[in-house]
Nucleic acid binder design. Structure first.
Lengths: 226, 226
DNA sequence: GTCTATACACTGATAGAC
DNA sequence: GTCTATCAGTGTATAGAC
């Protein structure tokens, strides 16, 4: 009566034409929509319903693909941290301070520019006391800051820049660049524009680089050695 | 038999010992608690229930005193805008740039210091696209910025500072000072402290003043005239 | 794999007891 | 003036139809 027991191969079910493409597309839609909604309303204020509508899917699908609201949120935070880590390239005390600081400002500005919603998502998380990111802040990120700070201090000892507090300097760069994503609504309202253009970003980057480098007594990179 | 009709004086009902003190105290408790909860979770994410618990009152009392969640939120925003306006004293083109910029940085820093929750409440509102503050941003605040910007430009024309874009400069000061309230969780995590002390604030203010003034080519105020 | 139906806690707000 | 009881609506999450 039992037909010959089939070889128990776990037979990944070929559902219609599904080659995994729809799943991939749906997940991408959900992540994009969720980033926007979480950024605007915070973790508590965002509803799965709102995310589903923004993604053009029924509510249950969002939970089906992402498991839970919490899991979706954590996944978005991790994606943003990964983007962040991608630009944390190593620097050495032998590098040129002006070049490093300019690259630092520029890459941070580009990150906020390329991922404004992720930037705001991160900001909202910190604003609420960083309940999900506390370990990251006081662990990985803290180490990263301390390493850069030591290099800045050595530059100051070598007379390549003023002896400013390196940690406050890093916070200054972070806040100034972050501002154009997080406070975009304010920037637009005050300047009367309807968007921040690439040209604006270029000008702001140049402005910040000039003021911060000069303010810290860093010689501009163009200076010919010897 | 009708006793002489008392003169219909509208007799404000003396409810027990209530001289209005309990109402005042309760309202204060609610406003303080609500500022904290709205700051942490945004408008949508904050629940009247959570505010009531933080204030030590039943939920209905919060609505009884404040009318509605929306009204409470608007009232908090207006209170914060009033604090903000209080430090927007007039400046003239004949003032000393260094003194004005230093006072600007200092007073803004003190505002964030004295009202960190209000500062974060404001930040959360902007982060969410400023649905309640759009008119304020593109009206009152925009005018204020344009007036200061004109004065900065005139200073640059007189050679008192570098010809930097004055609006970006204002944003730089705002973001750098705001950061220590809005991103407090990050600052604490990275520096490993458990609070930002008055001494820290003093040092940060001095750091920002030095870097920004020097970065904009403003001569320090100590310079003796003539 | 996808979506409808549903479970049940919690939301802002109000009516009415005390 | 203050608080309990309750409303209709929405929250996350899951079970089960297709």
């Amino acid at each position: 009566m039992p037909q010959t027991p089939s070889p128990e191969k776990p037979r990944t079910r070929i559902a219609s034409v599904s080659n995994g493409a729809t799943r991939e597309r749906n997940e991408r839609e959900i992540l994009t929509a969720a980033e926007r909604v979480f950024a605007a309303h915070g973790y508590r204020g965002a509803s799965v319903q709102a995310i589903a509508e923004a993604a053009g899917l029924p509510k249950s699908n969002v939970l089906y693909y992402m498991g839970s609201k919490r899991g979706l949120y954590v996944r978005l935070l991790e994606r943003m941290m990964a983007r962040w880590n991608a630009l944390l390239d190593d620097i050495s005390v032998d590098d040129d301070p002006a070049e490093v600081l300019e690259a630092f400002i520029r890459s941070k500005m580009e990150l906020s520019r390329r991922h404004p919603e992720g930037s705001r998502l991160f900001a909202a998380e910190i604003l609420g006391g960083a309940p999900f990111l506390q370990d990251y802040l006081s662990g990985e990120l803290r180490t990263w800051v301390e390493e850069r700070a030591r290099i800045f201090e050595q530059w100051a000892e070598r007379g390549l820049m003023d002896p400013v507090d390196p940690v406050w300097l890093i916070f200054l760069i972070w806040s100034a660049t972050q501002h154009y994503a997080d406070f975009e609504a304010q920037v637009l309202g005050i300047t009367g524009r309807d968007e921040i253009t690439d040209a604006d970003v270029e000008r702001i980057t140049a402005f910040l680089t000039q003021v911060i480098l000069k303010g810290c007594g860093v010689r501009p990179p163009a200076a010919a050695p010897d």
